[in-house]
Write a protein that binds this DNA or RNA. Structure first.
Lengths: 336, 336
DNA sequence: CTTGTCATTTACAACGTTGTAAAGTAAACG
DNA sequence: CGTTTACTTTACAACGTTGTAAATGACAAG
């Protein structure tokens, strides 16, 4: 039904291989031939069949982005950034959501759909260091997020510990001394939660402020409602506090809402800072201070690394760990 | 490199076609043969090559979702709903963003990537009724959004006019009489903006409230910042008002922020209602009343329609226009 | 024991593309 | 003018799968 190389070749009066050569920028083609072919292509509106190309060449021009959940603004914005970066390199992106835990993640990773793509950007949620060996070693892959380190794959992340430290220092610099941390995963060391908690502790240590476990508020999922629920529980305990470092913006927004319902004024009574710099933080009431992880940089770096792996499938260059820069963004929630 | 039908066939001691038959649930296969083949498949960890399957059968199991912008919470949530619906039917989704206007939309629609997919869900932004003929007639496609009606393709949308009417009626029922409308596109009739404005007018008419053009606030893009900017301009004009129907939630949130900065109390001074029921509306301060367009229903309906078109490529059943139910969600921004 | 029927399995071609290697052509050299 | 050299184009096979049609097997009826 659709136009194929054969149709173009017939119209241009050359072989299909010559048409293919024109399309793939093979250098030795007579200018007259090239012109003929090109005008035949545009006359017929030829579009290469990507399935055939992919079957023959092993390259589809599609990469997968595996993320937990698009409803989470951070991942939506990250996905946006990845798609822009990919588009700039001529790649399409298949997004797969995996909100279902370890079993589902492995299923998707091993499923037939991964055959279709040239490489995978995998924002690890459930898998841990101990599952690293489950990752297909032949598939080009770049890991995002912070669950697997020094694994078998390239890895791009923000500086979690340094970022959380800077966030905490920011509140300390405002004179806050009873700073709560929202979003811990008890017992976790390597994930974002563990690393950010570590940064929080480092900042307290260096400032000579004692670490008080009762100020650490656990929250497993990091959505608005989880932040709200956790803050509700925390307020019931009546632990006095004057600052809040939330491990992401969504939780911070949920928590701010609950705090204000409870009559706490932000930033007068409690200074708040989040993590991720999602767009919403600019318009919340009050606007939310945050750590900007430069999602664009993460996305571009990850796509570049992935493309490098795709282009050199034989290379056994060791896996690289890259950490991007971050920036403290002060808004009303931590105004002086 | 990867396992193919040949490998499975060799191990099971049958022909590749028999393996193919087993995989595709061909009925006439001896149970013993089926067992042999199945155990060979799982022993080798065979995964079908989707490129080859797609090349041969013309089906890839992938659909495209064309949306303006993932940073817009509505589209992120819609994309999420579409992906869930698609996953339930065994389909993958390629998301393409097209923030660039008509030219870019047509480029993407006609680009080679559309060859890879079985069908397209197209959330029309820039194209209008007059461009309907540009849509490839052979490609299964379902239109979302409200720019093209009675076009050549199936169409799923919410009841824009009825929804806006209900929103306006809701504010009227609270005794509001000077209700502003935020997000109009001057001159537009068919898009969401035009239809929602129409609903707003109908509600006023029926309530016997005069339509006052100075209460209609234009905003071309519908992001938070556009709502904020438009409201800032509107406040400068000093037009008195006591209610606000925003044509989407993001604008409403941006506008609420500006109103509160200006000292207006919500809902005491101004009752506000938005459109879309994005998650954020539950946690904003105040929480935002809105029209819930049932994104899940839109997504499921659209995927079902698309799948029907994909399965019956020859059918020339006429294009259908479906409108989903909506629901008025009252929250604090329009509390009594 | 032959024939017919149905179940089961197979060989082969085809989908549209690109890699390989070879064929053809023109220009340059001795 | 024959030969080398470089450029340009081509035929053919292959990627892994499924559709078509034909071959084989099994079994009941005549």
């Amino acid at each position: 039904m659709a136009i194929t190389l054969h149709d173009v070749a017939r119209l241009a009066g050359v072989s299909i291989k010559t048409v293919s050569n024109v399309i793939n920028d093979y250098p030795h083609i007579r200018p007259a031939t090239r012109t003929k072919v090109e005008s035949a292509i545009s006359e017929l509106g030829y579009q290469p069949n990507l399935s055939a190309r992919s079957l023959r060449s092993g390259r589809s021009g599609v990469i997968s982005l595996l993320i937990p959940d698009l409803r989470n603004a951070y991942f939506a914005e990250l996905a946006d950034a990845v798609m822009r970066a990919a588009q700039a390199k001529g790649l399409s992106v298949i997004i797969e959501q995996m909100p279902g835990g370890k079993k589902e993640e492995l299923e998707i990773l091993r499923g037939p759909r991964m055959q279709l793509v040239d490489g995978i950007l995998y924002s690890v949620l459930a898998l841990g260091e101990e599952d690293a060996h489950e990752l297909d070693s032949r598939m080009p892959m770049v890991l995002l997020g912070d669950r697997i380190f020094h694994g078998p794959k390239d890895h791009v992340t923000m500086q979690n510990t340094a970022g959380a430290k800077a966030a905490t220092e920011h509140l300390l610099s405002l004179g806050r001394r009873r700073i709560a941390a929202l979003g811990s995963h008890p017992g976790e060391v390597v994930g974002s939660a563990g690393l950010r908690l570590e940064g929080y502790r480092q900042a307290l240590d260096e400032a000579g402020v004692a670490y008080d476990p009762s100020l650490v508020i656990p929250a497993i999922n990091w959505h608005r409602k989880d932040g709200a629920a956790a803050m509700r529980r925390f307020l019931e305990q009546g632990v006095p506090f004057d600052g809040l470092v939330a491990f992401n913006d969504s939780m911070a927004l949920g928590a701010m809402r609950v705090m204000q319902e409870a009559g706490l004024r932000i930033p007068d009574d409690v200074s708040v800072i989040g993590f991720d710099d999602i767009d919403e933080t600019r318009y919340s009431i009050p606007s939310l201070s945050t750590i900007d992880p430069s999602k664009d940089e993460i996305a571009e770096t990850a796509v570049d690394l992935l493309l490098e792996r795709i282009d050199n499938p034989e290379s056994d260059a060791p896996a690289r760990d890259l950490a991007t820069e971050f920036r403290v963004v002060q808004r009303e929630s931590s105004a002086r």
